[in-house]
Computed example of a mutant assay.
Amino acid sequence: MIRMPSDQVTFEALEQLVPVAPDWRVAWDRIWPLWPELSLLDNCQQDPVHHAEGDVGRHTRMVVDALVSLPDWRQLDPGNRSCLFWAAVLHDVGKPATTRAEDDGRITSRGHSRVGASIARRLLWHAGAPFVWREQLCGLIVTHQLPFWLIERGNPERLAIETSWKCRPDLLCLHAEADAMGRICADQDGILVNVGLARQVFEDAGCGTEPFAFANDESRVAFFERPDRDPRYVAFEDFRCRVTVMSGLPGAGKDTWIARNRPELPVVSLDAVREELGEPATGNQGRVIQAAYEAARQHLRKGQDFVWNATNISAQLRGRPLRLLRDYGARVEIVYLEPSQAALHAQNRSRDAVVPEAVIDDLVRKLEPPGRWEAHKVTHVVEGCTL
């Protein structure tokens, strides 16, 4: 098998491999060599109770073949058809890193959906895939198991509403249908019934094909914060101040964006605090973070608008500052910057403190762009265009 170097895989090449009429042929001989992550699936075993077909590689091929046979997939517009196809190819790519044998002999792969989305995002980032297409695909991978068990949970409507903001529900259920068809197990019919019921839950909640429509931004943010919040509650919007939270890899252009778009506002910058304290970028950052949070609190107590400037490249990193801002009644906008790869590396090299390329590559593995549910407003600036 001739394998293509991962950094030479392009989005254009991926598009050409999506099956088309009239034969809808899946070119496995060209798809499987694209990334070494796919070949790992052939040696990754699964629990025979749920996957009597064998390893993850065989399951993946069965899922993709099932998807391509579905009339609903064939009738999608080309962009969604392509996105769903590659989501199916990559949906279990996280299993080799998460598969474990339990003491009772069963095989589990807990967490593989989230790990798989991260791997897929890195592969597609290097391929130059369009941002919206890529993030929709990653959302499908993160949530791809949900239709199997949605109806069995205590509050399926709430889960459906949350999920509708993370991926498109009709595409998710179509993928789940193919995922159920692409396996050998005793409860296959029951899984397919559950997928059908999940479709109905999404539709009944008013989010069968698009995100649930909240009354306003605060209603949405509060819903995702509080498990007891009624999704139809109309929240009162009265904010003490407005805070812009920057997000992006080193070299993404956060300082430049602030200078052009928020020149009048004070900035709390972790890099600036680190420089003031004489702390290195590596090692324990506790002192830097503590000082930055105190500076932010001073602005919040005064009701002063300001900018919080840090990489904030994952939901976990964004979580703590967002909670602080919410505690003080701020209206929050997250601005995420993603320039082209060439621009990112060029801008990084022009920084006073250049971040090593290896560090940036490691950060790409952890990259998790902000979702539109995380703040009152989320702005994605991708290759200079605001999405």
Score class of each variant (00 low, 15 high):
337 L>D: 02
161 I>F: 05
50 H>D: 13
312 N>V: 01
133 W>N: 05
57 G>C: 01
192 L>G: 01
124 L>M: 09
209 T>A: 12
165 W>Y: 14
350 S>W: 10
171 L>D: 05
384 G>V: 08
213 A>D: 15
328 Y>Q: 04
233 Y>P: 05
238 D>M: 13
321 P>T: 08
174 L>N: 01
70 L>R: 07
383 E>T: 05
38 L>Y: 08
349 R>D: 13
167 C>W: 01
121 R>N: 12
51 H>C: 04
347 Q>V: 11
344 L>N: 01
328 Y>C: 07
78 P>C: 04
158 R>W: 01
86 W>S: 04
172 L>C: 00
165 W>I: 05
148 F>W: 11
353 A>F: 12
371 G>K: 08
27 A>M: 09
187 D>F: 10
197 L>N: 10
4 M>R: 15
15 E>H: 08
99 T>V: 15
383 E>D: 13
355 V>M: 03
212 F>L: 06
251 G>A: 09
229 R>E: 14
25 R>S: 12
168 R>M: 11
349 R>F: 09
177 E>R: 07
143 T>F: 11
345 H>K: 11
16 Q>R: 14
354 V>A: 04
89 V>A: 04
23 D>P: 02
300 L>P: 06
214 F>M: 05
339 P>D: 00
175 H>T: 02
41 L>T: 01
219 S>T: 12
87 A>L: 02
64 V>D: 05
328 Y>G: 05
181 M>V: 04
350 S>I: 09
80 N>P: 03
93 V>S: 02
102 E>W: 03
47 D>Q: 00
168 R>P: 06
356 P>I: 10
293 Y>F: 15
362 D>N: 13
43 N>Q: 13
12 E>V: 14
133 W>M: 12
45 Q>Y: 11
155 N>L: 06
299 H>E: 07
381 V>W: 06
152 E>C: 02
322 L>V: 06
115 V>P: 02
317 L>T: 15
379 T>W: 06
257 W>T: 11
284 N>H: 13
254 K>Q: 05
360 I>R: 02
249 L>S: 08
266 P>R: 13
266 P>F: 02
285 Q>S: 14
17 L>T: 00
159 L>I: 11
220 R>K: 15
212 F>R: 00
339 P>R: 01
275 E>W: 12
153 R>S: 07
161 I>R: 03
25 R>E: 14
372 R>C: 11
24 W>F: 09
203 E>F: 10
307 V>M: 01
131 F>Y: 13
315 A>M: 12
184 I>S: 10
164 S>L: 04
96 P>K: 05
8 Q>H: 14
314 S>F: 06
281 A>N: 07
238 D>G: 12
242 R>V: 09
159 L>P: 00
121 R>K: 12
276 E>Y: 08
341 Q>V: 13
202 F>K: 07
181 M>Q: 15
183 R>F: 02
368 E>A: 14
367 L>S: 06
268 V>F: 08
120 A>N: 03
297 R>D: 04
372 R>K: 09
122 R>F: 09
160 A>G: 05
301 R>G: 07
331 R>K: 15
104 D>W: 03
261 N>H: 15
85 F>E: 03
4 M>E: 14
178 A>S: 08
321 P>S: 07
375 A>I: 00
65 D>Q: 10
157 E>Q: 12
200 Q>V: 06
